[in-house]
C-alpha cells in the first residue's frame, strides 16, 4: 500500500489547530482571570514569541520537504514499514 507524505502533513496541521485551540484558552484565562503583575506579562508575551518562533522554524524546515513523495507502508510479503 502506498500513500503520499502529505497525509502526515495533514495530521500535523490538525495537531496545530488543537495546539492553537488550547493556546487560545490559556491566553484567555491569563487575560481574563489573571492578576496584573510584571511576570504575568513577561511570561504571556514570552509564550507568544516562543510559539511564533517554533512555528516559523517548523515552517522553514517543512517547506523544504517534498510532501508528494510516495511512502510504501505495507509490503505484501511482510507487515513491516518501509521508508
Amino acid at each position: 500500500m502506498e500513500i503520499t507524505l502529505s497525509v502526515f502533513l495533514f495530521i500535523y496541521l490538525i495537531y496545530i489547530l488543537i495546539f492553537l485551540f488550547f493556546s487560545f484558552f490559556n491566553l484567555y484565562h491569563m487575560l481574563r482571570f489573571g492578576f496584573v503583575s510584571f511576570w504575568a506579562y513577561v511570561i504571556t508575551i514570552g509564550y507568544i514569541i516562543i510559539t511564533l518562533l517554533a512555528l516559523f522554524v517548523s515552517y522553514y524546515y517543512i517547506a523544504q520537504v517534498d510532501w508528494n513523495q510516495p511512502l510504501e507502508i505495507f509490503n505484501s510479503n511482510s507487515n513491516s514499514m518501509y521508508f
Binding site: L5, F8, L9, Y12, Y15, I16, F19, F22, S23, N26, I43, Y47, I50, T51, A54, L55, V57, S58, Y61, I62, V65, D66, W67, Q69, L71, F83
Partner: peptide, 23 residues
C-alpha cells in the same frame, strides 16, 4: 528523506507540546 520529513513534523509537534505544557 522520508525519515527527515517525518522527524521534522514529529519534533515540531513535540516542542509545541512542551511549550504548551509549560505554559
Amino acid at each position: 528523506d522520508t525519515v527527515k520529513a517525518l522527524t521534522t513534523i514529529i519534533v515540531s509537534a513535540y516542542y509545541l507540546f512542551v511549550i504548551l505544557y509549560a505554559f
